[in-house]
Amino acid sequence: MSFKENMNLYSKGDKAFVYLNMFLVAMFTISTLYPFIYVASLSVSLGDAVTAGKVVLTPVDFTLAAYDKVLSDPAFWTSYANTFIYTIGGTIVSLLIIVPGAYALSRPQLAGRKYWNMMIAFTMWFNAGMIPFFLNMRDLGLLDSYIGIIIGFACNAFNIILLRNFFEAVPASFEEAARMDGANDFQVLWQVFIPLAKPALATITLFCIVARWNGFFWAMVLLRDESKVPLQVYLRQIITQLTDDDTFASTLITASYSYETVSSAIMICSIIPVLLIYPWVQKSFNKGIMLGGVKE
């Protein structure tokens, strides 16, 4: 489609169309980016300037006072560390369950394969809902525990089906050749399928990481102990207390930082790790997600 690249061949109307289109996309992109810039600017502006309503786009009276405040709060570090525990532990457990499971479900020699798969897929259409899930976690003694959060959310039908479809698409001869060479199921999975499924695995791993990093609802519901809550729950406490409780907010106001700058600083601290892995996320979903995701 070389004609597409060669602008010289375009008519006047087409050129106008192309530029107008570019302009509109640019506008949308900027409006996507703006809130992040705004929050970032708030987080490094002087509290007084923010309270006076001076910060709209760029930082005013640059200061890291809000970060000082946030980073000197032990609760922040505790929650940050917890988030890392939940993210890393949760992702590892997820993969340990999902990868062998998806492999087994993809093998034609698995007896009752259709029914196992239906059992998995059914949970995409119907689930018991919040209350029975909560009561179940309580009955299992998984309230207020790291294990509860890590194990209780380790699997979901979508990821298993995504990976299973990928494994199913691997030509049968790969497995057969490995078997004739003497490989058992674990060796076939580890030495052949996992290396072949790298793009799909990367996608699932990143999805797990992002979901774990961002998850807050069940952490909020299941964890009572402040020392176990993840960053998102901590952040939520700050934000909602700001809106609900004026006295709490007033404790956060000094000349150098205000509650806006402090909550912005926490948000930025929470976004940064996502931004750091984002390039990989993007690369993998560009090629990975469509491979298995669409064919259900």
């Binding site: 001869s173 790969f174 057969e176 050749a177 078997r179 004739m180 072949l196």
Partner: peptide, 21 residues
């Protein structure tokens, strides 16, 4: 007897060469 214990080797139509090796 399992394939691996039959002492036979097979060349597949699509060769089944592992792309990562």
């Amino acid at each position: 007897v399992a394939p691996k214990d039959r002492d036979v080797a097979m060349v597949f139509q699509n060769y089944a060469l592992y792309p990562h090796l």
